[in-house]
Design a protein around this nucleic acid. Structure first.
Lengths: 342, 342
DNA sequence: ATCGGCAAGGCAAAGGTTTTCGCAATGCGA
DNA sequence: TCGCATTGCGAAAACCTTTGCCTTGCCGAT
């Protein structure tokens, strides 16, 4: 395979095949008019030498590097991961490679990364973050397309893809209503998170459509933790004793709610049904009972971001804030009440 | 800043500064002998035009691309993430960029990625995976240095960095012994995982040094889940009623154990102390009580991998399987028994 | 017999940067 | 004043690939 020193170049291949480098290039790339016999000879020579085209030289000439940058503010927590996977789905294994840049919420780091990406002539950039956060555009007049995913740009001329948190809230509550629940509370994260507010709004919208309101009169904002879930449901039980369902702002809260309800002697889902948000499997499936929850389809969102970026590379950039639908994953915690035994 | 069409080249900068491209290059890179006045003029011209050197052209010539590839079999689960962060730490923000490749345990995908990385002339490759798994070398005679992290190569000529799982097990049990516990059980994951076996071995070693053995006579192998933790501790309580501590193979198991013990009316840590493994904060801190656990220092491992890779790039490759120490994170679940209230 | 057209493949430029070499100018000591 | 070392800078090659254009040779048609 690999012979002596230095990687083998197309000139080596051409020499072995007895043609010129230009011809070898055309043969390998299927361009120009090359006889089948010659093409085969070149191909065999390339295989024999283990030829690997130099992507740097190719990129220098063609102006495309077949790489994209991915800048994330999330410390690659659980939100970025599926997004990254989706991006990879869209870009194909090895066709276009992804530069990973973790800015750690440091504007300076981010600029360093941006600079490095542009120097490497990436074909495009994806910006992502934790939760749904509004953020400054990463730069201006970048010469390369940029797509924002999860986090969204404050400039409406940029293309941003975010999950439809409000729709997700609606989905959750509609589902609870469909199982016959009517006294539905909402325990969620801090109100400074746009996602929390949107989910609550979606929930209230669904309730209003049924002529109902939130149990306890309002959404309970707190933290994204189990501990808050436990405290929150206590509060809820005091203000709405007839509580028969809780929609939670994320799965951790839901898990805390489930634990506390069990400790308080309430059966889930017999007495109280539960729906979470995020479909974080390690939480949702370990919950007792396994948790019905809203999935933001982040991987699909990542894939969409990758596809839109490719469209941008091909000269069809998009713009505006685009919502991608959530979906509901039904598990035991929201089963309809058993018909009364007996 | 960015003027008309096409990125500005060093020739543009040179023209504006009134020097030749070669001189401009030297001025910007601090090579050769250039007068301070000229260097300043060139620098100003570069700033004025917003010059960004073309890394492709530079790499083509110098043979170094200042990029590395990171291939992971883990679906960027929680193990790869800190490793990736550590790698980024070692490579500096923007100095060397990381190509992210997720092979998804598919040998074919992996080969595609490898091919793509080599074509892009990466300076080196890091291979990582979930847990501590032995694996085939990614390729032979690759021309670029390779470092394995977490997963380790079956070829001892390769350099592999793995956490010292056995040492971690020893650490955990020594700590429990130091708080006065003597009847210590071990509930862990499947025995086909090398990590599980090593951790158990480390635990038994520490016990043997104190003239003790595992409560129940042997380690209980099962799954990496909370559910198994609950069942496992039941088993343990039956075979060792005097149980006063449990060392768990991971934090999820530990959490299941904690929940079950509470339900069984045993106080943690009053009656039974608990130590987990992984220091997965979302589990460990949400546990009731917060969980003492072993941290594999994966980020440090990632940083070490990055540093060793750079050493390899500089012509100082390493080899062999190298263990990196774990450390103990003490929280409430292993507090020494309160002195009996008088 | 001449020419047009086509297929196959070679030539050379281009892409942007770094680096070697050489040249000119300057400064210094003799 | 001359010779020499040193400094500052320019010219050009090199890195590897792609591609537009050109040449060559062949075939069929006129």
């Amino acid at each position: 395979m690999v012979t002596g020193q230095g990687p083998v170049t197309i000139t080596d291949v051409a020499r072995l095949a007895g043609v010129s480098p230009g011809t070898a290039s055309k043969a390998l790339n299927g361009r120009g008019s090359i006889s089948a016999r010659t093409a085969l000879r070149v191909q065999q020579a390339a295989d024999q030498l283990g030829y690997q085209p130099n992507a740097l030289a190719r990129g220098l000439l063609t102006g495309r590097s077949f790489t994209v940058g991915l800048i994330t503010t999330d410390s690659f927590g659980r939100f970025s991961i599926p997004v990254v996977q989706g991006v990879e789905d869209a870009l194909g294994p090895g066709r276009i490679l992804v530069f990973l840049c973790e800015s750690r919420d440091d504007r300076l780091r981010e600029q360093h990364y941006l600079q490095a990406l542009l120097e490497r002539r990436v074909d495009g950039i994806i910006v992502t973050g934790r939760r749904q956060d509004r953020r400054e555009p990463i730069g201006r007049d970048l010469r390369v397309p940029v797509v924002y995913a999860m986090a969204y740009s404050s400039d409406p001329a940029d293309l941003s893809l975010v999950p439809d948190d409000e729709g997700g809230g609606t989905l959750a509550v509609r589902h609870l209503l469909s199982t016959g629940r009517t006294t539905i509370g909402h325990v969620t994260g801090p109100s400074r998170f746009r996602a929390a507010v949107l989910r609550a709004a979606g929930a209230e919208k669904a309730l209003a459509a049924a002529g109902l309101g939130l149990a306890g009169g309002r959404a309970l904002y707190g933290e994204w933790t189990e501990e808050w879930g436990r405290r929150g449901v206590d509060q809820l039980l005091r203000s709405a004793p007839g509580l028969d369902a809780v929609f939670c702002g994320n799965d951790q809260i839901a898990r805390g709610v489930a634990d506390r309800l069990r400790e308080a002697g309430r059966n889930v889902p017999g007495d109280v049904a539960l729906v979470g948000f995020d479909n974080w499997d390690v939480i949702a499936t370990a919950c007792r009972p396994p948790l019905t929850t809203v999935d933001m389809n982040l991987r699909r969102l990542g894939r969409a971001a990758g596809e839109r970026l490719l469209a941008g590379v091909d000269g069809h950039p998009g713009s505006g804030l685009q919502l991608l639908p959530c979906s509901l994953v039904v598990r035991d915690s929201s089963q309809p009440r058993e018909p009364q035994a007996g």
